[in-house]
Simulated assay, not measured.
Amino acid sequence: MSTLRLVLRLLHLFAVIALGALLAALISLGERLARHDLLALRQRISRWYLARLAGVLPFRVHLRGERPQAAMLWVSNHVSWTDIPLLGLIAPLSFLSKAEVRDWPLAGWLAHKAGTLFIRRGAGDSSALNAQLGERLQAGHSPLLFPEATTTDGRAVRTFHGRLLSSAIDNQVAVQPVAIRYRRNGERDDVAPFIGDDSMGAHLLRLLACEVSDVEITLLPPIASHGLNRNELARRAQAVISTVVLEAEVVAEVAEEEEGAAA
C-alpha cells in the first residue's frame, strides 16, 4: 500500500512541478512585456500554486488565529522545507531562503520566480536584504523569515537572530509571529523534520510514502515594532512561538505518563 501511495503522490508531484514551470515561464514573459516587476501578481499566483503543492504533501492543515489585513513581517519557527508551501497557502507571502536553494534544480528557479530572496551565510549582506525587505513592506507585501536560520526537530525553538528584523522597525510595521507544529497520532511527527545530513530526495520519498498526518499553524497576535530594537523584537517573537511549540510537547509528555500509569 505504501508503495502504491508513493507512486501516485510522485505522479501528482511531477504534474504540479510541471504546472509551476509553466506558470513561472508565463510570469517571466509577462514581466518582459510589461517591462517592470509584477511582484503582487507573483505573490497571488505563488499562493495559489503553493496550495496545489501542499495538496501533494501528506498533511491535514489546521489553522488557528486571524490573518493580518495589513502588510507585516512574518516570522516562524522552522522544521522542514515543507514549511514553505504550508505557510504559503495561508496568505500571499514572499520568503527568505538560504542561497544554496537558488542552485537546486528547477526548485531554485521556481523559488526565484516566486519572489524569494536569498541570503548567503556570513556574506555580510544584511543591510542589502533589509533594504529589499523594506521595499516589499512599503509596497504592501508581506515577507516571511525563519529567524532560527536552520531547521529543528520541532521539540523547541532555537534562538531567533534579529538582524533582519530591522526592516520591520525601520518601516514601522508589526511582526506577525507564526508557530508551526507537525503531529502524527497526537505526538510530534518524526518524519516531517528536515534536519542534519538528510538529503532532499530521500526526505521527499520518505515523506510521500507516509500516511497523512497533521500540521498545526498558529497565527499569534502581532507584535508592534515601535520602541523596540531588533534583538528585543526577536526575543519577543521567539518567546510567544516557543510557548505554542513547548505546550504541545508538555501535553504529549503528560499523555505518555498517563498511559504508563494506566498500564
Rank of each mutant, 00 (worst) to 15 (best):
M1N: 08
T3S: 14
T3W: 10
R5V: 00
R5W: 00
V7A: 12
L10R: 02
L10S: 05
A15P: 11
A15F: 09
V16C: 09
L22F: 15
L23W: 04
A25L: 15
L26D: 09
L26W: 08
I27H: 05
S28T: 13
G30F: 12
L33F: 13
A34N: 01
L38N: 01
R44K: 13
I45W: 04
I45K: 12
W48L: 11
L50P: 04
A51P: 04
V56P: 08
F59G: 10
F59C: 13
R60M: 07
H62Q: 15
L63G: 07
L63E: 11
L63S: 05
R67W: 04
P68I: 07
Q69A: 14
A71N: 01
W74T: 03
V75S: 02
S80M: 05
S80Q: 04
D83Q: 12
G88S: 01
A91W: 01
F95R: 02
L96S: 07
L96T: 08
E100Y: 13
R102E: 04
L106M: 15
G108Q: 06
W109H: 07
W109Y: 11
A111Y: 09
R121G: 05
R121A: 05
S126R: 12
S126G: 14
S127T: 13
Q132G: 10
R136Y: 04
R136S: 05
P143W: 03
L145V: 08
L145A: 10
T151V: 04
T152W: 00
T152L: 00
G154H: 01
G154A: 08
A156M: 13
G162H: 08
R163Y: 03
L164W: 11
L164A: 11
L164M: 13
S167M: 12
A168G: 06
Q172K: 13
Q172I: 13
Q172V: 13
V175G: 00
V175Q: 00
P177L: 08
V178M: 08
A179C: 09
R184W: 09
R184K: 07
N185P: 09
R188D: 03
D190S: 12
V191C: 04
G196M: 00
D198F: 12
G201K: 08
A202S: 15
H203N: 12
L204Q: 01
R206V: 06
L207Y: 09
A209H: 07
S213F: 08
E216K: 00
E216I: 06
I217M: 03
S225E: 06
S225N: 02
N229V: 00
R230N: 10
R230E: 05
R230C: 05
A234M: 00
R235L: 14
A239S: 15
A239F: 14
T243F: 03
T243E: 06
T243L: 03
L246E: 10
E247N: 10
E247W: 04
A248L: 02
E249Q: 11
V251I: 12
A252K: 05
A252E: 04
E253K: 14
E253T: 08
E257I: 14
E257M: 14
E258G: 08
E259N: 13
G260F: 10
A263Y: 07
